[in-house]
């Protein structure tokens, strides 16, 4: 009898201590930190290497395919650059082919490729699929927009405020953050006209402050990934023996 009473007493006490402990939160009293660089250590493997290996093999086979040759390294910078000229010229050309098939052969007057979307340079010499993935990692699609003359002018002003972007089909001079001396396919913008512009779905949704592109007169989603479009076009040119090249032609000048 007495034994079980004591036993019960201990159990109650233990429970009380546990409950007390549970209700009492602990205080953070001290900290220290150590931020370390992650580096390759020669000869050391990690336990996830084996899990990566089959994917790496499959990927490398596709990524290392040579698809073109470039006469020089193409890099992106502002106001115009070899790389942004190259990509925007290619986009306008491909968009025109698309329009020929699916859009009554309407003229694609201008193309726009944002410099921020060109994530890497293209090397001199052999260009692989991997180079194009590094250039264009995003799953952006080619979109065609019909803009009013006024909207097109707004787009060119936005380009000017940003110090230049990749364009094809037009020429302009940046002056006080505005586009001046504009020509589109060799002519001044006619505000009574509409113009077809080829760009990415990212910019067409108003990205990078191109708000005016989000409300076009018409919009055609081609469903073509820009990266795929570039790869296919390079392969096609390569099969014809064309070496990739691009040059500055003064399409965007900075007045300052």
């Amino acid at each position: 009898m007495q034994f079980s009473f004591i036993g019960r007493g201990i159990a109650t006490l233990a429970l009380a201590v546990m409950l007390l402990a549970c209700n009492q939160t602990k205080e953070l009293v001290k900290y220290s930190s150590n931020y370390q660089d992650v580096v390759v250590v020669k000869g050391k493997t990690s336990r996830i290497d084996a899990a990566i290996a089959p994917y790496k093999k499959e990927l490398d086979e596709q990524m290392n395919e040579a698809i073109a040759t470039s006469a020089k390294e193409l890099s992106a910078y502002r106001p115009e650059s070899e790389l942004s000229n190259f990509v925007s010229d290619l986009l306008r050309e491909v968009a025109q082919k698309y329009a020929q098939k699916h859009l009554n052969n309407e003229t694609i007057a201008v193309s726009l490729a944002n410099n921020g979307g060109l994530r890497s340079s293209l090397p001199k010499g052999t260009i692989t699929v991997r180079n194009i993935f590094e250039l264009m990692p995003f799953e952006n699609e080619l979109v065609l927009l019909q803009l009013s003359g006024e909207q097109l002018k707004q787009m060119l002003d936005a380009i000017s405020r940003r110090g230049g972007e990749g364009v094809s089909g037009c020429r302009l001079t940046i002056k006080d953050d505005k586009a001046t001396a504009i020509t589109v396919l060799g002519e001044a913008i006619d505000n009574k006209n509409s113009y077809w512009v080829a760009t990415s779905d990212y910019l067409a949704s108003g990205g990078d402050t191109f708000h005016m592109l989000a409300k076009p007169e018409k919009r055609v989603n081609t469903g073509l990934k820009i990266r795929d479009v570039i790869i296919e076009d390079l392969k096609l040119k390569n099969s014809k023996g064309i070496v990739i090249d691009a040059k500055l032609d003064g399409r965007i000048k900075d007045a300052k």
Partner: peptide, 21 residues
């Protein structure tokens, strides 16, 4: 309040040791 951040691309591992009483 402690505010941490460790770069990107798994280039850095942040470590913060905390002691409680």
């Amino acid at each position: 309040v402690l505010v941490g951040q460790a770069g990107w691309g798994a280039l850095m591992l942040g470590r913060i040791d905390l002691w409680f009483d």
